[in-house]
Design a protein around this nucleic acid. Sequence first.
DNA 1: CAAAGTTCCTGCGAGC
DNA 2: TGCTCGCAGGAACTTT
Length: 301
Amino acid sequence: MPELPEVETVRRGLEQAMLGRTFTGVVLRRGNLRFPFPDGFATHLLGRKIESIRRRAKYLLLDLDDGRIILSHLGMSGRYTLFDAEKVKQFETSQNIDEHSRFGTATGFDGRHDHVEFRFDDGSVAVYTDPRRFGIIDLIEVGEEQIHPLLETLGPEPFGDWNANQLAKKLHKKTTSIKVALLDQRVVVGVGNIYACEALHRSGIHPQRQSKTLVRKDGKPTKKLHLLHENVVQVLEQAVEVGGSSLNDFADVNGTLGYFGHHFQAYDREDEPCLKEDCGGTIERITQSGRSTFLCPRCQR
DNA sequence: CAAAGTTCCTGCGAGC
DNA sequence: TGCTCGCAGGAACTTT
């Protein structure tokens, strides 16, 4: 579910519902996700107000009124579901009370994987659900955002002042394939397996091509690298516009499906025709660093 | 069998 | 020769 466009979609949903809200309760249904929850997590949050909600790479940052920050990552299967006060009431009076979350029927996994409940002063609730538990919910102490180990190694955001020259600088010595380089969050953040495949297909670049062959001897980007930079930005922007991809039913915090899946040109299209004008090739699936890559061997060189 | 992500470990080659 | 460093590739985490 979560590459930059999906995380940004979630950020916008959380912002609408949580901004200015104060925590009145936090329920942890287990001791950890990928990492243990920090000591005193629930206690720290009680009475705190959410002042802003930001995104950095694929991380969500919720700024609290005491300077601390909730840091959250969705991993592979994490999702937030929001319930307004009226919906919460319906669930609390329903027969659906067992050892799991009361919200199970609405979060799609019968409540077994609803690991955290955040309750707010207006009666609304946000539930974090994550079957594979590769996600993260952590608390950053005041002033420690810049030195947080998960954040400090991150490369540039694709939106903003990122350009082909910066990309060339990161790639000019790299012998690894361009597909694997795009997934490296030190090169550029936010790109995952789906959008890496899509950006390379749009650019006509073979995913196994050595990264440094896209940089000229004088360190400047080749034409193809300029194209790749543009297409990475463009594919991410377009996916944000339509609310992310709906692979495996990716839904935003209100349960609305993303639409970008309708726009895939390569990803998950093995043995289907290449959709590039006049290409006539067939999409192929290969494995790189243990992950599936989809490409058209005819128009990607 | 494969899955949208990230970190950590091991092995190898370059360079001192 | 032997050591260190950085990079590249793969395993691991877990459930559906």
